[in-house]
Simulated assay, not measured.
Amino acid sequence: MAKTIVITGAGGVLCSTLAIALAKEGHKIAVLDLKKEAADKVANEINGSGGQAIGVVANVLEKESLERAREEVHSTYGPCDILINGAGGNHPLGTTSNPHLKVEDLTDTTEGFKTFFDLDSAGIQFTFNLNFIGTLLPTQVFARDMVGREGCSILNISSMNAFTPLTKIPAYSGAKAAVSNFTQWLAVHFSKVGIRVNALAPGFFLTEQNRTLLTESSGDLTPRGQTIIDQTPMGRFGEPEDLIGTTLWLCSEGASFVTGVVVPVDGGFSAFSGV
């Protein structure tokens, strides 16, 4: 049965892939993104392939913007059946330069060098808000459509960082841990009104946000990228298409008794002790 699916951050690489895959299943897709051009590009690709999609501008940190997006979705496709909270990201002002603090770091005057003590509160707040508040607000707006209706669900995007934080990125790690916790809270809270809530925890996928951290301009791995591959039993980065199968399952009636879970899609990273 075709459903109306709202996807935030859907102009990005990972969520655009999910949008296209869900459209191929016959669902009507509302492609939400902060940038209208990015949203329209994905929607046009879906429509050009015979699917149904609209591009909608929405700021996941502004409830009024999300309410306007909801009105647009309603006028085109009706109430939201499935929400995928895909908007998120990191900020360099919430990132340390080194994985471990050394005494000599406290006197390092290199431009741009940051220890934990130099982290910018605005950068940390931006990262936390984008990932956590940017999941909470769309849920407040669109889950209202789902209350008391059958076959409705929410899919959040967590991260490997939520299980065990990566070095250098405390703000992002903490924010994604909050998303996982919120997923469980929502699953319990909505359990009596027919809304399932689950999350994906992607492993390491090359995106425009992390490409320069994980690969050199030559295409070779950076030391951080090599460490990740060494810790991933399947020995590669994820491809966007690797998220499709789990997404289709969690959004389908085949997962009708599944709620409150955070599913790693990580090539075995979370299962490997390193030994």
Rank of each mutant, 00 (worst) to 15 (best):
residue 1 M to T: 09
residue 1 M to R: 14
residue 4 T to H: 07
residue 4 T to Y: 09
residue 5 I to F: 15
residue 11 G to F: 00
residue 11 G to M: 01
residue 11 G to H: 11
residue 12 G to E: 02
residue 17 T to Y: 00
residue 19 A to G: 03
residue 23 A to N: 04
residue 25 E to G: 01
residue 27 H to S: 10
residue 28 K to E: 06
residue 29 I to L: 02
residue 29 I to S: 00
residue 33 D to A: 14
residue 34 L to Y: 15
residue 37 E to K: 04
residue 38 A to G: 00
residue 41 K to G: 00
residue 43 A to T: 01
residue 45 E to N: 05
residue 45 E to V: 04
residue 45 E to T: 09
residue 48 G to T: 02
residue 49 S to K: 11
residue 51 G to H: 02
residue 54 I to V: 08
residue 55 G to M: 08
residue 57 V to R: 13
residue 60 V to A: 14
residue 60 V to I: 12
residue 65 S to T: 06
residue 65 S to G: 07
residue 65 S to M: 09
residue 68 R to L: 13
residue 69 A to Q: 11
residue 69 A to T: 06
residue 70 R to S: 05
residue 71 E to G: 13
residue 71 E to Y: 14
residue 72 E to A: 11
residue 75 S to H: 03
residue 75 S to P: 05
residue 80 C to W: 02
residue 82 I to T: 04
residue 86 G to D: 10
residue 87 A to R: 01
residue 89 G to P: 05
residue 91 H to T: 10
residue 93 L to C: 09
residue 95 T to V: 11
residue 97 S to V: 00
residue 98 N to P: 00
residue 102 K to H: 08
residue 102 K to E: 10
residue 107 T to I: 11
residue 108 D to H: 01
residue 109 T to R: 10
residue 110 T to V: 05
residue 115 T to K: 01
residue 117 F to K: 04
residue 120 D to I: 00
residue 122 A to Y: 13
residue 122 A to F: 06
residue 125 Q to E: 04
residue 127 T to R: 00
residue 128 F to N: 10
residue 130 L to H: 01
residue 131 N to Q: 05
residue 134 G to E: 08
residue 136 L to P: 04
residue 136 L to F: 15
residue 143 A to C: 06
residue 145 D to N: 14
residue 145 D to C: 05
residue 146 M to P: 10
residue 148 G to K: 14
residue 149 R to P: 13
residue 150 E to W: 07
residue 152 C to L: 13
residue 155 L to R: 08
residue 155 L to E: 06
residue 167 T to H: 03
residue 169 I to E: 03
residue 169 I to A: 01
residue 171 A to W: 00
residue 172 Y to I: 06
residue 178 A to M: 15
residue 180 S to R: 13
residue 183 T to M: 03
residue 183 T to Y: 13
residue 184 Q to H: 08
residue 184 Q to L: 05
residue 184 Q to Y: 12
residue 185 W to M: 11
residue 187 A to L: 02
residue 190 F to N: 14
residue 190 F to W: 07
residue 191 S to P: 03
residue 195 I to L: 10
residue 195 I to H: 15
residue 197 V to E: 05
residue 200 L to D: 03
residue 200 L to N: 03
residue 201 A to G: 09
residue 205 F to Y: 13
residue 208 E to G: 06
residue 208 E to V: 07
residue 212 T to L: 09
residue 212 T to F: 13
residue 213 L to D: 05
residue 217 S to D: 10
residue 217 S to I: 09
residue 219 G to S: 03
residue 219 G to D: 14
residue 221 L to D: 15
residue 221 L to T: 07
residue 223 P to W: 11
residue 226 Q to Y: 13
residue 229 I to K: 14
residue 229 I to M: 15
residue 232 T to I: 12
residue 233 P to Q: 15
residue 233 P to N: 09
residue 236 R to M: 04
residue 238 G to N: 11
residue 239 E to Q: 10
residue 239 E to A: 13
residue 240 P to C: 04
residue 240 P to N: 03
residue 241 E to C: 00
residue 242 D to C: 08
residue 245 G to T: 12
residue 247 T to M: 02
residue 247 T to W: 10
residue 248 L to D: 07
residue 252 S to P: 12
residue 253 E to H: 12
residue 255 A to I: 10
residue 260 G to W: 15
residue 261 V to L: 04
residue 261 V to T: 13
residue 262 V to L: 04
residue 262 V to N: 12
residue 264 P to D: 07
residue 264 P to K: 13
residue 270 S to A: 15
residue 272 F to C: 06
residue 272 F to M: 15
residue 272 F to N: 08
